[in-house]
Design a protein around this nucleic acid. Structure first.
Lengths: 252, 252
DNA sequence: ACATAGAATTTCGTATACCAGATACGCAGC
DNA sequence: GCTGCGTATCTGGTATACGAAATTCTATGT
C-alpha cells in the first residue's frame, strides 16, 4: 500500500484581480444581449474601474483577453466596443464548430462509456419534454449544453476549449425562429441519431451526423440570419453598461 | 461606374507598444526552440523592459496575450515561464488541427479556383525537389506552408486563425525523425492525393484524405513522441532569454 | 442661425511607484 | 556539516501619474 499522500491545492491560483475582472466582464457582456439592440455599446475603463473597485491596470489586462476572444474591440483613444459579429462571421464560426464537434464525436464513439451515453440520453429527454413553444430560442443554453456534453466525451480538452470560445458567440442567433423549416423537430431527430450512432460505436457515422447537423444550422443562418447585419446604428454608451452590472457591483 | 473612393488605412493601427512587444516576444519564443533544451526558461519582466526599451506595462499586456495562446505561463509572484507542451497536448492539438483542416479542405474543394490549385502543385513540387535527407524535420516550415495554403483556399478566416495558433506549437515535433515509418514518401503521396481530390472537386474525399493524413501524424507522435515528456529539469534563466534577442535589441 | 477655429475635455496608451507573496541567503543552534 | 528560522531580496500584481490623440465644447465672425 502506498504511503498516505497529502495533496493541497494552491489556495488562490487564478484569483488575481485581472482574472476576476475578466470573468466578471465576460459574463456581463454575454448577458447584455447586444444582439437585441442596435447601436454601439461602449465600455469605459474609468467607469469600470469605479464600478468594480479596482484600478485600470487589471481592467485593461482583462480587456486585452476579451479582445483576443473577439468579445470587444479596442480602438486606441476612441473607445472599447462590444463586438457584434456579422452574419458571415457567425457562419464561419458555426463551420469551425462543426469541424471540431464532428471530430469530437468521432473520438467520443471510441472513448465514451455506456454511462456517458446514458447521460446524453438524459439531457436529450430533459429538453425533449420542454414545450417547444415556450422556448423561442433555437439554440438555447440547453441545446448548447447537449453539444458540450458530447464534446466532453471526446476527452480532448482542446476541443472543449476551442468550441467553448465559439459557443460564446452563438448568443447572436438565439433569437432565430425555431419554427422556420420545422427545425425544432428535425434537430431533435438528429440529436437522437447521433446518440444512437455513439451507442453503436460507429465513429464514422457519428462524425458525419454531427457534422451535417451543425452544418445544417450554418445553412439555416445563411437563409434566415440577415438580421445580424441589420443592427448597426446609434451610439448608446454608459447606460447599458451600468445596467449589465446592476447586481453585485463590488468585486470582492 | 461607381464614384472613385478614397480609402485610407489608419497609419499605425496596431502599432502600439503592446502589439510590437507581442510580436517580438512571440517570434523570440518560437525561435528559441525550447524543445531542444531541458529545463525551465524563465522570462523576467524587468529584464525584458530594459531589453526592449519600454516599460513593464505594455510588456505585461503582451505577456497576457501570449499566455492565452499557450506560449507562456504566468505564475503570480513566481515567474513567467515559456511553456513546453506535453506529448498528450501535442497530440490533442494535432487532432484539432485535423478537424479544422479537413473541414477547410472540404470547403476548398468547392471554392478554390483552378489557379489556386495550381499554386498548391507549385508548393508540392517545390519541396518534392528538396533532397529528403537534408531536412531532418518532419514538420518543416515548408510542410506547414503547404497545409496553410490549403486552409487559405477555404476562404474561412476563422479556420486560418485557429489553425495558425495550433501550428505555432508544432515546432515541438520538428525533430521527429522523418525516416521512421517511411513517412517522407508517404506524406508526399498523401499530399498529392489531396490535391488531386481537390482538382476533381471531390470535397468528401478531399476531406477524408486530409483528416487521415493529419491523424496519421498524430499516430506517429503517439508512437515516437515520448521525448516530449522527457525534458523537464533544471532552471536555466536569463542567459537563454538574452540569446534569443541577440539581434536587434531596441524595439523601434 | 450657422460654420469654424481653437481651447478644454475625454480616453486610451505608457511610465512609474508601491505592495505583498515567494524565494534566497545567512546565521544560530545542534 | 546539517537543519531550521528569520530577514533581505526578488518578482509579479496593482495603483497612480502622465502624455498624446481624438472628441466635444465654445466662442467668434459672418
Amino acid at each position: 500500500m502506498p504511503p498516505p499522500e497529502l495533496s493541497v491545492q494552491p489556495l488562490d491560483a487564478g484569483a488575481t484581480f485581472r482574472n476576476q475582472v475578466y470573468r466578471r466582464l465576460k459574463q456581463a457582456i454575454i448577458q447584455m444581449d447586444i444582439y437585441d439592440h442596435p447601436g454601439d455599446v461602449r465600455l469605459d475603463e474609468r467607469q469600470l474601474s469605479g464600478l468594480l473597485g479596482v484600478s485600470r491596470t487589471p481592467i485593461r489586462e482583462a480587456l486585452t483577453l476579451l479582445e483576443q476572444e473577439g468579445l470587444v474591440r479596442l480602438e486606441p483613444r476612441r473607445g472599447i466596443f462590444v463586438v457584434r459579429k456579422t452574419k458571415a462571421e457567425i457562419i464561419e464560426m458555426i463551420i469551425a464548430w462543426a469541424a471540431l464537434e464532428s471530430m469530437a464525436t468521432r473520438l467520443a464513439a471510441e472513448r465514451a462509456t455506456a454511462e456517458d451515453i446514458g447521460t446524453l440520453w438524459d439531457i436529450f429527454r430533459s429538453f425533449e419534454e420542454q414545450a417547444p413553444s415556450d422556448n423561442i430560442q433555437e439554440y438555447s443554453d440547453a441545446n448548447i449544453e447537449f453539444h458540450k456534453a458530447i464534446i466532453r466525451l471526446s476527452r480532448a480538452r482542446i476541443l472543449e476549449t476551442l468550441t467553448d470560445n465559439l459557443f460564446i458567440h452563438m448568443r447572436a442567433i438565439r433569437k432565430l425562429s425555431i419554427r422556420q423549416d420545422n427545425r425544432a423537430e428535425q434537430s431533435m431527430h438528429e440529436h437522437r441519431d447521433i446518440i444512437r450512432a455513439l451507442e453503436r460505436r460507429d465513429g464514422e457515422l457519428a462524425e458525419r451526423l454531427a457534422r451535417e447537423h451543425t452544418l445544417g444550422l450554418a445553412a439555416h443562418v445563411e437563409r434566415h440570419g440577415d438580421f445580424l447585419d441589420w443592427l448597426r446604428l446609434a451610439d448608446v454608451r454608459g447606460a447599458d453598461v451600468k445596467a449589465a452590472f446592476k447586481d453585485g457591483l463590488p468585486l470582492m
